Deep mutational scan, measured.
Amino acid sequence: MASQGTKRSYEQMETDGERQNATEIRASVGKMIGGIGRFYIQMCTELKLSDYEGRLIQNSLTIERMVLSAFDERRNKYLEEHPSAGKDPKKTGGPIYRRVNGKWMRELILYDKEEIRRIWRQANNGDDATAGLTHMMIWHSNLNDATYQRTRALVRTGMDPRMCSLMQGSTLPRRSGAAGAAVKGVGTMVMELVRMIKRGINDRNFWRGENGRKTRIAYERMCNILKGKFQTAAQKAMMDQVRESRNPGNAEFEDLTFLARSALILRGSVAHKSCLPACVYGPAVASGYDFEREGYSLVGIDPFRLLQNSQVYSLIRPNENPAHKSQLVWMACHSAAFEDLRVLSFIKGTKVLPRGKLSTRGVQIASNENMETMESSTLELRSRYWAIRTRSGGNTNQQRASAGQISIQPTFSVQRNLPFDRTTIMAAFNGNTEGRTSDMRTEIIRMMESARPEDVSFQGRGVFELSDEKAASPIVPSFDMSNEGSYFFGDNAEEYDN
C-alpha cells in the first residue's frame, strides 16, 4: 500500500469516517454492505422474486439502478423543472426478469421514488447511507470498465484509444464523492478537466460571474484530485501550473494530454476495490451473516471469500459463452479491467482472455432483445487465490505491452514486471518541450526514458491461498515475461453508450 500519510484510507472515504482504527473501519464497511443486503432482500420480497430470480444479476442491476435514481437529487430536480413526455419524475423502474413456464419473461416495473427511498433508509437504520449508494455506483463503473473500451470518449477529448488503461471510473457520476474520486484513473480526471476547458473556450461566460466562481472551485478541486494521483514531483508541479492558470485554454489542454500520456509509464495511484452486485450481499445477509459484527474490507480476502460461497446467475444470449460472461463479471467484481492478464489468470486459476476474444456482450439486456431465446446460467466467480488490492500504480518500471492497449494499471499487489510499449508511448511525445512547463516536461520525458521494462514492481508481494486469511504465506508467482498482458488488445469491444 502506498503510505497513507495525511490521506484517509478508502474504507474511511467509503464510510465518510473520520480517523478510525482498522477494526472500526471493518465494522463501518460491514455496516454499509449489510445495509445493501437488507435493502436487496426487501426489494425481492416487494417484487415477489423467487430465490433464483433474486440471484439473477440482471435483476440486481435494475434494483441497484432504481435506488441510485431515487437518490439522484440533481436529476430529480431537473426532471421536475423540465417535464418530458412519458417520463414521470417521481417514478423509477426498469426490467425485471421472471421464469414463467420454463421461459424467461421481461416485466417492466415502476415504483415511486419516495417508496424506494423509504425501503433503502429502513434497511440502513434510517440513514441515507450515501456510502452504500456510492458502492453500487463503483460496481456499475467497474462493470462498464470491463465491458467497454471507451474509444470515442478518448478520441473526443484528444487522447489515444490505446490509453484505455487510464480510464478507470470514466462512467462514474460526478456525485460519487471521495470514494469515487479515489477509483478514477488519470485519464478519467484528464477527460473531465478537458471537457471543462473546452467549454470555457467555447463559452465566454463559463468562468464568469457567480456560476463561474463555482465552476472555478470545481476545476481547482479536480486538479488537486489529479495532482494527488501522480507520484513524481515534476508531474505534480505541472498540475500546479494547470490549476493556477488564470484562464484555462489550449496550453492547459496540451499540458493535460501530455500528463495523461506520461501516466502510461509514470503511473498514478488509483484505488481498486472489489464492489459486488447487491444480489451477492442480499443472500449472505439472508443466511444470517452479520457483516457489521464480522467486519468487512473491500481490499482484502473478504470479497473473494464471499464470491467463493455465492451463487449468481445471468441471462445468456443464444451465441454467448457462459464462461466468457463469467470472466467479464469476475473482472468487474475485482475492479480488474486494466490489470495484467498474466496476473489475473494466476489468481483466477483459469486463463483470462483479452476482451476481443470473449464471445459475450454486456450483462444488460436491451429492451428490444428477444426473450424467447434467452437461457440462463451460473456465473463462475470463484478464484484459485486471493491478493491484496493496490492503491498505487506500482513502481515506475515497465515491460512490453500489446498493440491495442499500451500499458496497464495494476489492481493487485503482486510481484511482476509491468508491461508497456515504450516505443509507441515515446513516439507520441513530439519533443515539444517549450513553453512555461518546459523544464517539467524535459524531466518527465527523462524519467520515462530511463524506466526499464525488466524491473520488478511490488517486490516480494504474492497471492494467498483462500485458507490464508491473515495473509501469512505469500506465494510469489513467476510470469512468462514475453507473454501478452493487455485486456483490450487489438480490440473490438462495443462502445459504451450512456
Rank of each mutant, 00 (worst) to 15 (best):
D497C: 00
A153R: 08
M191N: 01
L110I: 15
Q20I: 00
G200L: 09
R416P: 00
M167H: 04
L466D: 09
R174H: 01
K214G: 03
I444D: 02
A387S: 15
W386A: 12
V456G: 03
Q235K: 11
L353M: 01
G404W: 02
P173N: 02
P89V: 06
S383E: 03
I445Y: 04
G349D: 07
E454I: 13
R175M: 15
T437D: 11
K103L: 12
P83Q: 12
V476R: 06
Q311H: 04
G158Q: 08
T23L: 12
A2T: 08
A153N: 02
Q12A: 07
R106K: 11
P410T: 10
E64F: 08
S245C: 07
P95C: 05
L256E: 10
V67D: 10
D302L: 00
S407K: 02
S170I: 09
Y40T: 01
N125I: 14
H82D: 08
E210H: 06
L344S: 12
P419T: 14
I316Y: 04
M137E: 02
L266W: 06
P95I: 12
Y281R: 13
S310T: 11
G126P: 00
D290F: 10
E372I: 08
S457C: 07
T215F: 07
E210S: 05
T373R: 15
F258W: 05
Q12Y: 08
G394F: 05
H334G: 01
E53C: 03
A85M: 03
D160I: 01
S383F: 04
L264I: 13
I316V: 13
L358E: 03
L341E: 01
S450P: 02
D497W: 07
G404A: 11
G102L: 11
L358T: 12
W120M: 08
H334M: 02
V183C: 02
I63T: 11
T92E: 07
A153W: 04
P453K: 08
I119Y: 09
F338S: 05
M159Q: 08
E244Q: 10
Q311K: 09
W139S: 13
I33S: 08
A251R: 02
M191D: 09
D480W: 10
D421H: 14
R175K: 15
M371Y: 03
N492G: 01
E18R: 01
